Simulated scan of single mutants.
Amino acid sequence: MLAEICGIDFKKQMVLRIGLAASEDTFCLSQARERLRMKTVIVVHGGAWAIPDMLAEASVAGVKTAARAGDAVLKNGGSAVDAVEKAVRYLEDDPAFDAGHGAVLNINGEVELDSIIMDGKTLATGAVASVRNIANPVSLARAVMQKTDHVMLTDRGASMFAERIGIPVADDLVTELERKDWELSNSYKDGVKTLFNTQWGHDTVGAVALDSLGNVACATSTGGIRNKMVGRVGDTPIIGSGGYADNRSGAVSCTGHGESILKVTLARLILFHMEQGKSATVAADASLQYMGERVKGCGGAIVVSSSGDWAANFTTERMAWASLKENVLHYGLNPKEDFTEMLK
């Protein structure tokens, strides 16, 4: 009766109210999801060693470019795994770094590349070692992770797998400068530690990232150290040493004297300290200090926690690094350096 008096169609009114409520719920859910989205982070490094002045500018420029490339992936909704692969591919394509197109030569004058990538969500991991003719071993490592039941492939087996899945062979990985430097050094008699701590050394590249869904990942890639023995594999492709990623703690990519990093499983050691409540910086510092005291090794690490805390620490003369979080680009080369740029 009231509806007839007032001229109100209650069925239409209820439909309208339900529609408005649904719209409000959708809006609130969208806002909640937006609030729950993590602030993305990416950190990259170009190797911890005695970087000579002639490579300093190129090294810093390279890590900044790689950080921007990885950040673009994250901003477009890409995963942490996508971001670290993209960043490391940029570094592998840059001849200023010892990975891919900038790889150093072993004692026989040959390229031998190692790489690892790890997904912190599932602990899925892929790695390759002693690869000779692949420009982007990080992508081959990801293929091992996603297309095989294994974690690591080496040398001939890795090359056979790359051929089977259509990854092209690269015959132009050695620069003219590297060939000249190799001919000058031409001896392993000083050992990797001595070479590593001089400008004859050369080292690893890597990246860690946190994506908007709260997943972390790491990737590390290297050509090793000049004049290494044929078949020598350092820390880079070894899970827990050259890199590790776990959503329950964070992600790490290591760089430095590979034999020392292997002995203390540096990446996993850093995350152990973080699991005990230490910040990324404190955990990295404590672990690098322990490595120095216990096995006399120097190195560096980049770290990101599952909450977005990040660090770039090293005990060598220099390490080129860069990070991007909330459009703020941090970067450095020398100890205690932390320059910033605001990106649009």
Rank of each mutant, 00 (worst) to 15 (best):
V169G: 01
G231F: 06
T204R: 03
K180Y: 08
R89E: 12
E24R: 11
L210N: 08
I165E: 08
D235F: 09
L329Q: 12
V303E: 12
G214S: 00
Q31I: 13
G256C: 01
G308N: 10
G206I: 14
G231N: 06
I42E: 11
T220Q: 02
A322W: 07
L262W: 06
G297N: 14
Q276C: 09
T65R: 12
W49G: 06
I167A: 07
E92S: 00
K189H: 08
Y244K: 02
V233G: 09
R132P: 07
L113D: 00
F97E: 08
F339W: 00
G7A: 02
E178Y: 09
L184Y: 07
A103N: 05
G19N: 04
E176L: 03
K336V: 00
A22D: 03
M319C: 04
A21S: 09
L2K: 01
G292W: 14
L210R: 05
V328A: 03
R226T: 14
R294V: 06
A21D: 09
G240P: 03
I225A: 03
I239C: 11
A251Q: 07
E85N: 05
A170M: 06
R232V: 00
C6L: 13
G191V: 00
A207C: 10
A267I: 02
G300H: 13
I270V: 14
G77H: 11
G77F: 10
G126Y: 01
L140G: 04
I134Q: 06
I165V: 09
A87Q: 07
A56S: 10
A162Q: 08
